[in-house]
Design a protein around this nucleic acid. Sequence first.
DNA 1: TAGATTGTTAATCGATTAACAATC
DNA 2: TAGATTGTTAATCGATTAACAATC
Lengths: 231, 231
Amino acid sequence: MPGQHISKSVVKRLPVYLRILDQLIQRRVDMVSSKDLSNESGFTAEQIRKDLAHFGAFGTRGSGYNTAYLREKIVKIIGLDKVINTIVVGAGNLGTAFTRYNSTKNPYVNVVGVFDQDPRLIGKKIASIDIYPLDKIAAFIDNNNIKVAIIAVPAAAAQKVAELLTAYGVKAILNFAPVKLKVGGGIHVHNADLTIELQSLIYYSSAEEERLKRLKQEGKTTKSPKPLLHN
Amino acid sequence: MPGQHISKSVVKRLPVYLRILDQLIQRRVDMVSSKDLSNESGFTAEQIRKDLAHFGAFGTRGSGYNTAYLREKIVKIIGLDKVINTIVVGAGNLGTAFTRYNSTKNPYVNVVGVFDQDPRLIGKKIASIDIYPLDKIAAFIDNNNIKVAIIAVPAAAAQKVAELLTAYGVKAILNFAPVKLKVGGGIHVHNADLTIELQSLIYYSSAEEERLKRLKQEGKTTKSPKPLLHN
DNA sequence: TAGATTGTTAATCGATTAACAATC
DNA sequence: TAGATTGTTAATCGATTAACAATC
């Protein structure tokens, strides 16, 4: 049933399928069932079939999916069938690591420039990618038709950077800064706040029932403080 | 209505509330409404009230939530009311950047050791945290009662590391490696696959309807390849 | 008391799971 | 033909949104 709007959950799973297909193709496996994909991805076979069915009928009943064919389809669905150039804003720990990591691990997306306001970094390189001053960013986005960018600047600077990026045509942002960016309609922001990822994990590291029970106990003695009349 | 099981979506939002409360407290704001929290977080006010109501009644009708009081409650709910020590496995780009980033930006969780199998790194430090050889990890987890760990090793090594960690009592893992980890029941894994985050963003960087239409067109001419009989 | 804002219940929406007919 | 596995429809589940009574 292709045609309708695709949910975020589905879109987030597509690159997982792509990664698995790339691995299978490299191992010269040419057919794969939804059951196999389930084993590799952790998603259920039903869900995988349903996800793919949103875009078309790519499989063969009785035998599964041709890996190369399905890969090609998914690449097109995501939009990775042409060269994708991105920029990283912020050459600190995260920006640098992301740039390096991406250059070796992500065959589909290129970081083509890194931007920072620290003059001492300008002219240096990260994984052979040049670091440019922040005030060159507008021209760069324009000249290179950049549609996707990574924000890896401190929280206080992120909103301004987001406005700069979107003003010059960036449509999608991967945001490492711990702030909710306010962007216009049609702009997609994906938050990758590592502090939050780690903190929410803590919740699961000790028995949750215990903790909630303890909290409940305390609630009986502690009272929610009365609001002060002033302020 | 406190007591029941809390969904993942709710748990993921708690650290966001915490971060905002910390900021408000620092600015000496002492009352905050769900509406205010909504503005800062991007979640709806109704959702925020509902999330908090899972754990108790922390607000005051008519005036909102006391920031210090709510912060204290959330800290306890997540389990951040005592010192949380974690370890990072893998001292490559991502492991190093994460360790540095965490030490300056995450006041609630400490990285107390970094592990790597490369002998040249042993004895060095990252943000004043020692790098230890991988074969010291079991004793370290034991001695320091580590319950949470970060995996930042190559995909091929990640499963083994996960098994090692969980065998010695780690209950929650933040996984940067691009593989689905197979872990036993009761172990929580949070995947932070940066390649996938970025790739799924690409989907939103060009008009989706256009792309899907084009795909549909092509589907009419290209046929799903017949499976070969051999294989 | 009037105004504001919570906590909670009910309605809606969306996503996942189950089931199975279609078909290779 | 028999066995396998897809694609799709129906049922279930869970999460979000809306509405509002409670109450500070």
